[in-house]
Amino acid sequence: MQILIPVIILGVLGLVFGALLGVAAKALKVEKDERIEEVLELLPGANCGGCGYAGCSALAEAIVKGEAEPTKCPGTKKENVDKIADILGIVVQEKEKMVAKVLCSGTCDKAAAKYEYEGITDCVAAQRFGGGEKSCSFGCTGYGSCVSVCRFDAIHIENGVAVVDDEKCVGCGMCAAICPKSVIDMIPAKQRVFVLCKSKDKGAVLKDICSAGCIGCKLCEKNCPNSAICVTDNLAAIDYSKCSNCGICVEKCPKKVISIR
């Protein structure tokens, strides 16, 4: 009979607690909007953070609440954006697709090195040692901070310079944000001509440190039929809204720093 006391007491204790939890679960139930789950299904699920929210589920919540546009995530496919709009019963305005582009052509063979860097393989760390290994203070450091933040495997280091895979890039902008040199720009996907240099050094200075830099000769500016190129601070810059991708500048550039894809 002695054994019955603990059995009964613990059994009753368990039953009471179980009943309490059951009642509490019903009374304290949190209503969750089912549409959040549905929207989440349609987002890429990479949790890259490019939208500025903590992850895809946070963005899904914001979209359902109406705080964010369904087009906020550049990685979402067109048909999925339409489906999200259907779920929420709203009309979305189309947003131009952007891709990242590394505006530097100073590969290891073209850009001179100041010293040999042997620290952590991270651009931000390398940047702290006199602005990085390369003599050019504007170019790609080449230690792949952008590679590590890309959730879509769309950017890689090739011969000391980061290169974006246009097919894979969804335009989230994480690489452009992390780059300590700001050498990565977000450019409309339909743009085909680029100035692959960010150096604002004078031509005479630049010639000594990189054989692939823009020297600011203004040949492109003079020859552009749409006046879409303007040289400021010794660097040619294309106005993407005016450029017709004709490719004349590509032919005229003496340093072959303007390229067409």
């Binding site: 603990p6 613990l10 607690f17 679960a25 304290l28 949190v30």
Partner: peptide, 26 residues
């Protein structure tokens, strides 16, 4: 029945954590 301490305490703690979680979520 003090010798049933461990079992009873584990039960109490488990229930408590579950309950606290629900309350905080709400």
């Amino acid at each position: 029945i003090e010798y049933m301490q461990t079992v009873a305490f584990i039960l109490v703690i488990a229930v408590l954590v579950q309950f606290v979680e629900m309350v905080i979520q709400k």
